[in-house]
Design a protein around this nucleic acid. Structure first.
Length: 476
DNA sequence: ATGTTC
């Protein structure tokens, strides 16, 4: 990115001052090094978002921001419905409510290493992964609607999990105001056989070791200590969310001009929050959030069953489950008052600070766990929300490493086998149905997740708590 | 991300 057009507010905060059609400034949080290698498209897209009606304070980009559909991935924007604010399908992303869930195991490294290969084989055998993968669960129309309204709560009620899991899931496992009736028959059909499946791309399920602790007190509150083994699940709403995104983008492309909204980029298709299309999308998107929450809940159940067979002494308790592709109604302080805003986070993780009422009681004093998925082999991070991120980014942080190289370029550079062998030599067992997928997801095709997380920490978006590194990775 | 093609 060309930094000459930005105003440096501080070491980790860069402003694109308001000009032209921008209603607010744009703000990017990153180190100078990350800024220099960041795609120029992030600048353009953050500026474009700043022109949308009803946007409040600023259009934000996180340290892992990169080029997305309309909005940058790693983008945060909040809109006020009372000021003509909009909701945008491209501001949420195609994989609605994609997110990360982290489970304690109570195990140590030696427990896992003694059965590492068997554990990997069993997880791979029992957890469907890859494009178009289907599971053992098949939903009829009634159950589909119950799932879309009930989320993880629905899954737990049907035996896939424990009531305690819901306490540790955003929205207590059930996104309110979901409208299954707003989800098309095609979107439902695509999802009928896909519950409890991982999907593809950067989605993964990993058994990881806590290798570093940066904040002892918060780590203790989160139940994490160096040497602990955890399970991290990164996936979303599969075909259903994608279909909803596709359909509503088309409807919003038509709706925007009808409501007098001038778009600097067609991909910014949006509709006023208080319009029919806007309300329809919010109902469908919330149903997709429930789909993703239910999906991660069912996957949790499948993981528990594998551990019960392979490592029966394990006790898999949920630390937290947080999404990074959503639009949520939240109260935020802005312009001297508290306002109810529609906060879009696309490739950005909610990061509520200590004391926020939506954080589970047992974790409330420490701040919300912010789960950051790295690329396979490079490690992932647990952070905690801070009080100051409320003013900085509507309580949002980064979501992952972000690609440094296109999938195409990665395919030309590596073979899947070669990536698997290289990780095996570092003690990491990778299982995947797709060698092509593994090559595309080679660790070197991603930015350095540590640099991203350090920038998020130093910018005050969230606080570093622990680093985890994989021992077993199931890749879609 | 994605029945990898609007």
């Amino acid at each position: 990115m060309d930094l000459s057009q930005l105003k440096r507010r501080s070491d980790f905060e860069w402003e694109i001052p308001q000009r032209g059609a921008m209603r607010v400034p744009a703000v990017i949080y990153a180190s100078e090094a990350l800024m220099r290698e960041m795609d120029q498209k992030v600048y353009e897209q953050a500026v474009n978002v700043a022109t949308l009606p009803g946007i409040v304070k600023a259009s934000y980009a996180m340290p892992d921001a990169h080029w997305g559909y309309g909005f940058p991935i790693g983008g945060v924007a909040a809109f006020d419905p009372a000021e003509g604010g909009v909701v945008s399908a491209g501001g949420v992303g195609f994989d609605i409510s994609c997110g990360v869930r982290c489970l304690h195991t109570g195990l140590a490294r030696a427990d896992v290493m003694a059965v590492q290969k068997e554990l990997a084989e069993m997880l791979y055998y029992r957890i469907p992964a890859g494009v178009g993968s289907t599971g053992a669960i098949h939903l009829n129309e009634t159950e589909m609607d119950a799932m879309l309204a009930g989320g993880a709560k629905w899954a737990v009620e049907r035996g896939w999990g424990e009531a305690a899991d819901l306490e540790r899931t955003e929205e207590r496992g059930q996104m309110p105001h979901a409208k299954p009736g707003n989800v098309s028959a095609l979107a439902k059909k695509r999802q009928r056989d896909e519950m409890g499946t991982l999907g593809s791309g950067n989605h993964y399920l990993e058994v990881q070791e806590v290798t570093e602790v940066y904040d002892e007190a918060i780590a203790r509150a989160f139940g994490l200590a160096r040497g602990d083994i955890v399970v991290m699940i990164h996936c979303g709403s599969r075909g259903l969310g994608h279909q909803i995104g596709t359909e509503y983008l088309k409807r919003m492309a038509i709706a925007a001009p009808q409501h007098g909204i001038r778009l600097p980029d067609r991909e910014l298709a949006c509709a006023p929050i208080e319009s029919d299309v806007g309300q329809d999308y919010l109902g469908a998107m919330r149903a997709a959030i429930n789909c993703a929450l239910a999906n991660r809940q069912i996957l949790t159940h499948l993981v528990r069953k594998v551990f019960a067979d392979v490592l029966p002494q394990a006790r898999l308790a949920l630390l937290y489950d947080v999404s990074h592709n959503t639009c949520k109604v939240e109260e935020h302080r802005a312009d001297g008052g508290t306002r109810r805003l529609y906060v879009h986070r696309k490739g950005a993780t909610r990061a509520f600070g200590p004391g926020h009422p939506d954080i589970p009681e047992a974790l409330r004093a420490a701040g919300q766990p912010v789960l950051i998925g790295g690329s396979m082999g490079t490690g992932s991070y647990v952070l905690a929300g801070t009080g100051e991120s409320e003013a900085r980014s509507f309580s949002s942080a980064c979501h992952g490493a972000g690609r440094a190289m296109s999938r195409h370029q990665a395919l030309r550079t590596w073979k899947g086998r070669q990536v698997i062998d290289a990780l095996a030599s570092r003690g990491i067992v990778v299982k995947s149905p797709s060698m092509r997928g593994v090559a595309e997801e080679a660790p070197e095709a991603y930015k350095d997740v540590s640099a991203v997380v350090d920038a998020a920490d130093l910018a005050g978006l969230a606080k570093k708590v622990a680093r985890v590194e994989p021992l077993v990775c199931i890749k879609g």
